[in-house]
Design a binder for these strands. Structure first.
Length: 717
RNA sequence: GGCGUGGUAGCUCAGCCGGUUAGAGCGCAGGAUUCAUAAUCCUGAGGUCGAGGGUUCAAGUCCCUCCCACGCUACCA
C-alpha cells in the first residue's frame, strides 16, 4: 500500500472498571483525536472508532465487590466514558461497546471462522474450580498468600504487593474470591492460538514492513520502542495462547464448536474485534459500507494505544487478523509511553490520578488548556510527567503570553489602525523580515516563510510527532510577534501607511493559519479565532489543504482586504497559583500515600502465619535425603536439577537455588525433602518434591541440614 | 533474571547515518519597547551529554561493562 487512500483510526478501548484519567487521554485518545482532525483538515477520508471494553474477569470481580451486576457496572462506565470524551472534545465517529449484541455476533463469527480453518489447537489444562459456585476460576478470581512476600491478598495472576507474577497454583492457601471456599484443580478444555506458526511472516512484516511480498508500510515510521518490543517478543519465541476462558460474562464461544458450553472468548481476543464491530455498527446506522475500511488494501489502519498494549496490537491481533484472512493489518501503531503525575506513577486503585471527568467539572473553561498541556508533555518516546506547576507555566507563557497575546495584538491593531477592516497589502513594499530585524523583505517571501513553518507542522503530524508539531505552532506565533516587533506598525503608519497595512495584513494571515493549525489540538480556541476573523466555522473538510494551496500559489491572500474583523477577545486567561494549589491539595488527600503497598525488601520480618491443625502438619511427608547429582537447567538462572537419594528411591527435584549454590557444592549434601508434594514441571523439568531451605535476612537461601547420623529416607517430624 | 525503551542545562525536551567553541522553550539576569492579557523583542549566565572502559585523527552520537527509571516477560517446588 504505502500511499493510503483513507485512514481508519482506532484508540484503545477503555476498560469499563474505572474512570478515565489524564494518562489515558495523553496516552492515546488525544493523539488519535489530533491526528484525525488534522488529516481531515487536509481533506483526507478518515474514520475514528472506539468503544468500551466491557468483558473480562476484573469487571465481574469489581461488580461483585460493589454488589451490583456486571451489566450495571458496565453501563455506568460506558455512560461516564461517553460524557468524558465529549467533555474534552474527543470526536469519535462511533463509540461502541463490546457488550452489544452486534459485537457478540461479530466476535463469535470471527472465532468460528478461525475454528473452521483449523487455526486453533484444543488443549486440556488443569485449573482451579469453585465447587460451590460451580465454575472455573480465572486467575484473578483466586486469592491467597503470596509465596514470595507472604502478602495474604495476592491474586492468582500477580501479587500486588511485591509485583511478582504468579500462577494460581503457586498461591499458598488459595481461596475462591467468589465463595471463599478452597478451590480444587479440575481439567478444562480450551482453544489455543499457536502464535509460533505465524512467526516468520510477522517478523518480516514488523521488521521490513513487507506483507505477502508487498511493501505494506515503512518500518522506519514506526516508533523505536514499538519495534523493539515486538522484536523482543519474536526473539523470545512465540507461544500458543489460550483464546478462551471459563467465565460467565463475555462473548460465548460459538455453539457450533463442540464443547463450547460455558466458554467465553478471552477478552484480549474479544476487545480488538470491537474495532471491527464498531465500524460495522457505524456503517449500519448510516447505510455506509464498512468493508472498505477493513478489507481494502488502500485503507491505512492506525491503532493509537499505550505501551502496555503493544504486543496485542502488533503481534497477537495482527496474527489473528491474518489467520482470519479477510482483514487488513495495521499500518502503524503509534504507542505512547506512560504519563506520571507529580513524581509518582498514576494509579487508579490508589487514587493517584487527575480524573478527566472531574477536571471537566472543576475547570470547564480550561478544556483546551488541558489538551494543550497534555500535548506538550505527551509521552511519545519516553515516560513524561504531569505537574500542576507545569500546567500553569505552559498555559501562562505559551498560551496567554505568546499565542493568545499575539492574536489579540493583531486584532487590536486592525481595529486601532484600520477601523476593524482587513487592510490591503502591497507586494512591492519593503518591510522588515520577521526572521531578523536587519533583513528587508517583501510580501511573497514572508508568505512563503509562513508556508514553510506551517508545512513543517504538517510533516510532524504525519510522523506522529505531536509535540514537535505543537512546538512548530508556537514558533509561528513567536514569529508573528517578531514581525510586529520589528516593523512596529503603530509607528510605521505615521511614515509609510502602505507598509503598515501590509504588515498588519500579514499578521492577520498568521492568525488565520494559526487558527487552522491549532484546531486539532484546541478546537474551541480555533473556533474563536475563526469567529474573530469572521470566517466560517471549521468543518474539517480540507480547509487546511485549501489554505496551503492558496499560500503556495501566492496569487492571493487567505483574507479579503476590506472585510470586517470582530473586536478582540481574550482567548486564554492566566492560571493563578490558587487554582493549582487547590488541585495539589486534592491530590494529597487521595488515599494514595496510606495505601501504597510498599515494595518489600527480603530483609523484612516474615509475618506469622495462621495456626494449623496437627493433622495439617502430619500430612506432610518430610524425609532426609542426599544429593547425588546436581546440574543447571538450561535457560534458567535460578534453577538446579537435583537427584536426591531418599533411601528407598531416587527423586528428581528442581530447586531455585542456583544463585546461592553451585551444583558442585550441593552434591553429597544432606537435605530435608518434602516427599509427598504434588509433582510440578518447572522450565520443562518435573520436580518431584521440594528441598527445605531457610531464608536469611538478605533473602538468601540456605539448606536445612539434617544431622549426619540420620540415614536417607529417615522421617522428619 | 531476560528483553525493550529512555537517562543531555534548575525544569521540559531537540540533537538522523560520529566531525568546528553541545541546541530550543520555560525559569533566571541585564537591556530595548509600550500596539497588546505587566504581554513582546534583544542579549547573557547556566551542562565533565547516567558511571567507567574501548574503537577512531575525531564520540551524547559506535562497541563493552555497570547503575537508575519505566514497560513487557519469566524458572526461585
Amino acid at each position: 500500500m504505502v500511499n493510503p487512500k483513507r485512514y481508519l483510526v482506532t484508540a484503545a478501548l477503555p476498560y469499563a472498571n474505572g474512570p478515565l484519567h489524564i494518562g489515558h487521554l495523553a496516552g492515546c485518545y488525544l493523539p488519535a483525536d489530533i491526528y484525525v482532525r488534522f488529516r481531515r483538515l487536509e481533506g483526507e477520508e478518515v474514520l475514528f472508532i472506539c468503544g468500551s471494553d466491557e468483558h473480562g474477569a476484573a469487571i465481574t470481580l469489581r461488580a461483585m465487590k460493589e454488589g451490583i451486576s456486571p451489566r450495571a457496572l458496565v453501563d455506568r462506565y460506558h455512560q461516564l466514558f461517553q460524557e468524558t470524551f465529549s467533555g474534552v472534545d474527543i470526536g469519535f465517529d462511533y463509540y461502541f461497546r463490546t457488550s452489544h449484541e452486534l459485537h457478540h455476533q461479530v466476535a463469535r463469527d470471527f472465532f468460528l471462522k478461525l475454528y473452521k480453518k483449523g487455526e486453533f489447537v484444543e488443549k486440556s489444562t488443569e485449573q482451579f474450580y469453585d465447587e460451590k459456585a460451580g465454575i472455573f476460576l480465572a486467575d484473578r478470581y483466586v486469592k491467597g498468600t503470596c509465596p514470595e512476600c507472604g502478602y495474604p491478598e495476592a491474586y492468582g495472576d500477580q501479587c500486588e504487593k511485591c509485583g511478582i507474577s504468579l500462577s494460581p497454583t503457586e498461591l499458598i492457601d488459595p481461596v475462591s474470591t467468589l465463595t471463599g471456599t478452597r478451590p480444587v484443580l479440575k481439567t478444562t478444555k480450551h482453544w489455543f492460538f499457536p502464535l509460533q506458526k505465524h512467526e516468520s511472516w510477522l517478523r518480516k512484516w514488523i521488521e521490513e514492513g513487507v506483507l505477502g511480498g508487498q511493501q505494506h508500510h515503512w518500518p522506519e515510521q514506526w516508533r523505536a520502542h514499538v519495534i523493539g518490543q515486538c522484536r523482543s517478543w519474536l526473539d523470545g519465541g512465540l507461544r500458543e495462547r489460550a483464546m478462551t476462558r471459563d467465565l460467565d460474562w463475555g462473548v460465548d464461544v460459538p455453539e457450533e464448536v463442540p464443547g463450547s458450553a460455558g466458554k467465553k472468548l478471552y477478552v484480549w481476543m474479544d476487545a480488538p474485534i470491537g474495532y471491527i464491530s464498531a465500524t460495522q455498527k457505524w456503517a449500519e446506522e448510516r447505510g455506509a459500507d464498512w468493508k472498505k475500511w477493513w478489507q481494502d488494501e488502500e485503507t491505512a489502519l492506525i491503532h493509537f494505544i499505550g505501551k502496555d498494549n503493544i504486543v496485542f496490537h502488533c503481534i497477537i491481533f495482527p496474527a489473528l487478523l491474518h489467520a482470519h484472512g479477510d482483514y487488513i493489518l495495521p499500518y502503524n501503531v503509534p504507542a505512547n509511553q506512560f504519563l506520571n503525575l507529580e513524581g509518582d506513577k498514576i494509579s487508579t486503585s490508589r487514587g493517584w490520578a487527575v480524573w478527566v471527568h472531574e477536571f471537566i467539572q472543576e475547570m470547564p473553561d480550561r478544556i483546551d488548556e488541558l489538551r494543550f498541556y497534555l500535548s506538550k508533555i505527551m509521552p511519545e518516546h519516553k515516560d513524561s510527567e504531569f505537574q500542576w506547576s507545569g500546567f500553569m507555566e505552559a498555559v501562562n507563557s505559551d498560551l496567554v503570553n505568546n499565542l493568545g497575546n499575539f492574536i489579540h495584538r493583531v486584532i487590536h491593531l486592525t481595529h486601532r489602525l484600520f477601523g476593524g477592516k482587513v487592510p490591503p497589502y502591497d507586494e512591492e513594499v519593503a518591510i522588515t523580515a520577521s526572521r531578523s530585524p536587519d533583513e528587508l523583505s517583501f510580501w511573497d517571501s514572508e508568505v512563503l516563510d509562513l508556508f514553510d513553518l506551517a508545512d513543517e507542522v504538517r510533516q510532524q503530524i504525519h510522523a506522529f510527532e505531536f509535540r514537535k508539531a505543537l512546538q512548530g505552532i508556537l514558533e509561528i506565533a513567536a514569529r508573528g510577534n517578531q514581525l510586529l516587533q520589528f516593523n512596529a506598525p503603530w509607528e510605521l503608519i505615521k511614515k509609510n501607511r502602505v507598509a503598515a497595512e501590509t504588515v498588519v495584513h500579514l499578521g492577520l494571515l498568521y492568525v488565520d493559519v494559526l487558527g487552522l493549525l491549532v484546531h486539532p489540538y484546541m478546537p474551541r480556541t480555533a473556533a474563536k479565532i475563526r469567529a474573530l476573523l469572521n470566517k466560517d466555522a471549521i468543518r474539517e473538510a480540507g480547509e487546511l489543504k485549501e489554505a496551503f494551496e492558496i499560500l503556495a500559489s501566492l496569487e492571493r491572500s487567505l483574507l479579503v482586504p476590506g472585510s470586517a474583523v470582530n473586536p478582540p477577545e481574550r482567548l486564554f486567561r492566566k492560571v493563578e497559583e490558587a487554582e493549582i494549589q487547590h488541585q495539589r491539595e486534592k491530590l494529597q488527600r487521595s488515599p494514595s500515600k496510606a495505601d501504597k503497598p510498599e515494595k518489600v525488601k527480603p530483609s523484612k520480618a516474615v509475618e506469622p502465619m495462621p495456626t494449623i491443625e496437627f493433622e495439617d502438619f502430619s500430612r506432610m511427608d518430610l524425609r532426609v535425603g542426599t544429593v547425588l547429582h546436581a546440574e543447571r537447567i538450561q535457560g534458567a538462572d535460578k534453577l538446579l536439577r537435583l537427584e536426591v537419594d531418599l533411601g528407598s528411591e531416587q527423586r528428581q527435584i528442581v530447586a531455585g537455588v542456583a544463585q546461592q549454590y553451585s551444583p558442585e557444592e550441593l552434591i553429597g549434601k544432606k537435605v530435608v525433602v518434602v516427599a509427598n508434594l504434588k509433582p510440578k514441571k518447572l522450565r520443562g523439568v518435573e520436580s518431584q518434591g521440594m528441598v527445605l531451605m531457610a531464608e536469611d535476612r538478605a533473602g538468601r537461601l540456605h539448606l536445612v541440614a539434617p544431622p549426619a547420623e540420620c540415614e536417607n529416607g529417615a522421617r522428619v517430624r
